[in-house]
Amino acid sequence: MPSLIDIRRRVRSVRNTQQITKAMKMISAAKLRRAQDRALGARPYREMLRQILENVAAEAAQNPDAAANPLLAVRPERKVLVVVVTADRGLAGGFNSNLLRLAQTFVNENQDKELTFELIGRKGRDYWRRRTRAIRGEHIDVFRDLSYEKTWPIADSIIERFEKQEIDAVYLFVNEFKNVMAPNVTMMRILPVELPKTTAQVDYIYEQPPEELLANLLPHYVRTWLFRALMESVAAEHAARMAAMEAATTNASDMIDKLTRHMNRVRQASITREIIEIVSGAAALE
C-alpha cells in the first residue's frame, strides 16, 4: 500500500501538470481568438476574388482558346501531389493524427499512382519521412506569424510543377475550422482549378482582355486558397489544443479528487490502527 507521503507526492505532481494544462488552455484560447479574427478578416478578399473569377471565367469561356489555360487542364491522374497541412506542435488531441489518418487512407487507395508529397507542418513531415521518399517539399515554421508572402512561394512552386505537367492533380489535406469544439478534416482538390459557376454575370468593361485576366487570376486564386487553408488550420489547431487541454485539466481535477480521498482513507486507517494498538496495549496491562 502506498504510504501517505507517496500519495501526497502524486497529488502535488498532478497539480503541477494541471497548472500547465490550464495555462496552455488559456494561451490557446487567446491565440484562437486572434487566429479567428484573421481568418475572418481574410473573408472579404476571398469572396470578392471569387466573384471576379466567376465573371472573368464566364466571359473568357466564350472564347475557346481561353479555356485552354494550363491551370484548368484536366488530365488523367497518374502523378498526384499530396499536400498535407499539419501543425508544428502536438498536444492538440486528435488534430494531427486524424488528418494523417485521412491522408494515409488516400495514399493506400491510390497506390497505383505516382504520389509525391508536399508537407506543411512539422508533425506531417515527421510522419511521412519515415514512410516515403517522395517528399518534394517541406515547410516548417510557417504558422508562427503566418503571412500571405510566406505561402506565396509554396503555392507558386506547386503551380509551376503542375504547369510543367510534372503532376496531374493536387490534393490538399487540411483541418478546417468549423467550430470551436471539433476541427473538420477535409480533402480538396486544388488543381486543376474547378471554376466557380457564375450566378449573375456582369457586363464589365475589361481593361485587359479577359483571357489575360483569367491567366493572372487563376494562380492568384490558388495562392489565396492555400493561404486560407493555412489560416483555417491555425485556428483549428488552437481550437483543438484548447479542447484537449480543457479535457486534460478536468481529468487532472478528477485525479486529484480521487487521490485526496484515497489519501484521507489511508490516514484514517493509520490512525485507527494506532488507536487499536494503544487500546489493546492498555487492555493487556490490566
Binding site: 484573421r38 478578416g41 481574410a42 478578399y45 476571398r46 503571412s147 500571405y148 485587359q208
Partner: peptide, 23 residues
Amino acid sequence: EIVTPTKQVVNERAEYAEIPGKD
C-alpha cells in the same frame, strides 16, 4: 472597399478615387 488577403483596409463612402491600373 480596399481589401488585402489578410484584412479589410478601407470600407467607406468616397467621392473620388484615383487608382493605379496596370496600364
